[in-house]
Amino acid sequence: MNSGEPIPETRRDSVSGANSNFGLQQLQRWLYGAITGSSVSDGDDSERISDSVADHVAPSHALSSEERLEIYQRAYVARLIEVLREEYSVLCRAFGTELFDQFAMEYLRVYPSESYTLARLGDRFVEFLEATRPAESDRMSESNPESDENPIGNWADFFIDLARLEQTVNQVFDGPGNENLPPFSAHDLAKLSADDFATARLIVAPCVRLLETRFPVDEYFAAILRDERPAIPRPDQSYVAVSRRSYRTERRSLTRSQYTLLATMQAGVAVGDALAVAAEMGDEPIEKFANQIERWFADWTAAGFFLGYEYEAAKNPSQPDLVV
């Protein structure tokens, strides 16, 4: 509990009603199972109640007990699939509705909702897709009809990457942002001496999320949003930053050097050390890399990637000097 509100001691037990409402609890467990097809039995057969619908649900003049229950059964699947289709609307268009719904139905069976909010319904969808990807043996034996170079396992990688990107965009959309924090500008950054810049740790905004993907899914994602019907691209290690500015999500493709630099700074490494890592692990000549650094930092700062900076602890061992 993080509300800071006390729970009345005398009511801690009574609010559950687990003992005084045994019959209601059993009925609710039965109805939940009957509607969703997922049992929540605690395994004690002596506590089970009849499985007969007619024993619990009365008929109406027009419908039998079973027909009335079916209204809830149909609605449960339909409404939750509708939510997943909206949450993963790009993935749904990539899959096609029929295939997407098959995955969604199985996902709901494996991971039924345990949250009060539908915003969390698809939290484990990417994890589910990873877990249900074709086995390695299938990957090698089946192939993409349009390209022998794309074994079916690679197709799975593509859809998983696409789902990860879409999930990240959704999380950034409604997660913590920097809109209500003091702006940090390129001008603030320019005040630092070269030495201070090298030893400063830039504080990356919480709405900046960095993704490394096996396919160039960002381009595909953008094409789907433009209502195009792009072909599945060939594998190509790709990097993308998802961020938010003025409550609007933004995506920008990154080079490996940019991704490495940002990810290293995001991990709390000082700018100078992060630059060294990026120069070594990046994908471009060191001279070109060096020539672009200033522009990169200006662009990222303007995009709201940074909240401020703090100096290396060694400069002020008693207390880091946070500047925002």
């Binding site: 009345p8 009511r11 009574s14 609010v15 009603g17 005084s20 409402n21 019959g23 209601l24 609890q25 009925l27 609710q28 467990r29 109805l31 939940y32 509607i35 969703t36 997922s38 929540v40 605690d42 809830y72 609605a75 449960y76 409404r79 939750l80 939510v83 039924p112 909702s113 345990e114 949250s115 009060y116 539908l118 319904l121």
Partner: peptide, 30 residues
């Protein structure tokens, strides 16, 4: 809407009897 930590995200009806009246009243008061 749910039981045993699961949520159907549907507004499910209750049996309407004395026991359930007492159960709901207690929770509303809390």
């Amino acid at each position: 809407t749910g039981v045993a930590g699961r949520n159907t995200h549907d507004l499910l009806p209750l049996p309407m009897n004395d026991t359930v009246v007492s159960h709901v009243i207690e929770r509303v008061k809390v």
